[in-house]
Amino acid sequence: MSIGHTLLGLLESGPRHGYDLKRAFDERFGHDRPLHYGQVYSTMSRLLKNGLVVVDGVEAGGGPERKRYAITDAGITDVATWLATPEKPEPYLQSTLYTKVVLALMTGRGAAELLDTQRAEHLRLMRELTRRKKDGDLADQLICDHALFHLEADLRWLELTAARLDRLAEEVRR
């Protein structure tokens, strides 16, 4: 999961302090693994270096967590690109996909399209696996089937999420 893109996405709704960013991240995405300040600091400095964020102001007391960051136009474009690019279909993708969906909803982008794109990508791979399976021996078939079932589970999750987008949007915007 790309922490950088996630933090960028969180900044889209307005400039935030470093500790704000950490708290927002933990609240929404860090259910079992909260971010360290160090991670926030290093990520933000990389984004600063790449020109995706700027420092909007510093609060008295200094320290990296007291800096206020704002997203740049380049940063917004970067988030958009990230959201629009389907993830490489692989097992246990849902935390990333979830993050993407929530960010898309938070930033007013089309979450449904995101899911559709991802579904197409999943299916493309499934088609390939199916083809490989058809021509392969039993070992190939078993291996492909394993992958296929996992991908199918992801796809089902995508379907389910797509069906619940309205409710999710409500919760995110609250």
Binding site: A112, D116, R119, A120, H122, L123, M126, R127, L129, T130, L148, F149, L151, E152, L155, R156, A162
Partner: peptide, 16 residues
């Protein structure tokens, strides 16, 4: 509605 069945196709069309 099953992805594994749809995987036998050349392409898919989604109806929503």
């Amino acid at each position: 509605h099953e992805a594994r069945v749809a995987a036998w196709s050349d392409r898919e069309v989604v109806v929503r």
